[in-house]
Design a protein around this nucleic acid. Sequence first.
RNA 1: GGAGAGGUGGCUGAGUGGUCGAAAGCACCUUCCUGCUAAGAAGACGUACGGAGUUAAUCUGUACCGAGGGUUCGAAUCCCUCCCUCUCCGCCA
Length: 469
Amino acid sequence: MSPLLSISSQFHGITLLKSYNQEPGENSGPISITSSLTKKFKMLDLKLIRENPEAVETALARRHGGFSIKELVEIDARLRKVQSEWEALNCRSNEISELFKSGKLSGPEKESFKSETKEIKSRQGEVEEEKRVLEGQRTQLALAIPNMPGADVPDGKDEEENKIVSTWGTIPGIKNPRHHYDLGAELGIFDFERGVKIAESRFTVLMNWGAKMERALMNFMLDSHSKRGYSEVFPPILVNRNCLVGTGQLPKFADDFYKCADDELYLVPTAEVPITNLYREEVIDEADLPIYHCAYTPNFRREAGSAGKDTRGYIRQHQFNKVELVKFCTPETSADEHEKLTRDAELILEALELPYRRMLLCSGDMGFCAAKCYDLEVWFPAQDKYREISSCSVFGDFQARRANLRYKPTDGGKAKYLHTINGSGLAIGRAMAAILENNQQPDGSVRVPTVLQPYMGVSVIAAKLAAVT
RNA sequence: GGAGAGGUGGCUGAGUGGUCGAAAGCACCUUCCUGCUAAGAAGACGUACGGAGUUAAUCUGUACCGAGGGUUCGAAUCCCUCCCUCUCCGCCA
């Protein structure tokens, strides 16, 4: 069996047992990763890269993103050469220290050894400079390499080649369906103009039943997931840099986030970030796995690079609400847990009576960290197409390496990297938009899905009821 | 924001210049003993990268005591800078 087969048969792309601990250059290069993470910081398994560069290269090529480890491999080899040189010098200087320790040196001998050490130190300084540069380069390169697609991920370049796994529900036969933004504006539940006035474009104010439905959806989703065993978390919405490196958003996607001007803190782009980082740098007992969490947070994205996309309506906002599902589990169970998590997200769509389909993303369309990903797409009648409402990914140990998430196996042995999985369950704003469009009535009112009625206290949102009294 | 204390291995916690990769305790693992609301004895027990060795056992080099820099033949230990945590005060939803 080739190494590649053994690797990809787990589909997580990365061997788990092999761990690589790299010490990046201190403050060298443009990436500065602060404090404890610096030392324990890990990314793709370098050992795997050294031993099977072709296999890794082949796997990365499937992403069609122009990723290559060639430069990394070369830098790594040079670095290790420099490192041995440095170590040899250090070894000699340690020997000299030992001689001093023995206390048997004569005066002239002492002087001679002192000057030898001085020479060693100065040579070491030169080597060290080179080492530092190489380490910085290696870190930078390694952090910019995405996860390898799993073996059961179809090849493909972009979203055109994603595979439909299943579809659910009946597409409603609505004559001349109206867009959610028109309906919502008419019903007095979206105020796009004032959102812009208060913040800027792509910020929206929810009024009256809109605000209530947002809250109803949030509560319904959290309640549902809680009942299925997800423990609820309400985390900080501002996170530090290490969190974003840990879950893979940084350093590569720095333009996507809002950053505080005076503090090294970022607004979360998704609850995945704080929740996954809950256990960063920790070792969890295997007996405590799997861990299921659900969390509501507002999410903030600058949407750099999506100019002109979805400019109308409530689909692509700088601030949006989402309930997120996150799992921590052993490598053996992650494939299964991923399926179950995706199913848990689907159950929300089904409860909301929204037609949807499940897509298996092809290798070229997956996110940076994902080993495998399902997107759930909900039907938008006015657009006459399915739109993403949830993305459920399994990461293998990719995030676990970055965030140093480990577990202690029950059978003893060393701490191993665990596997992480997450998915939206669901994006709340898009869910509301989908409800508006799919449940619109000829008279311009909107039927409230049955499961939401207890949360909202009404069964229909009608124009005449639009004002909450 | 002000003042003080502190950051050491899975955890607790000693350690103020070489005998420290690091006492002790807890946890975990192995063995033995005892025998049942579990106790006792002994041993083993950090991570990473490299070299030798049968891609073994094992031996060995280097680094790591928050991070970076400095002093020194030699730093967990002394000095400087930064980060973080805790306590008290101030402010405050």
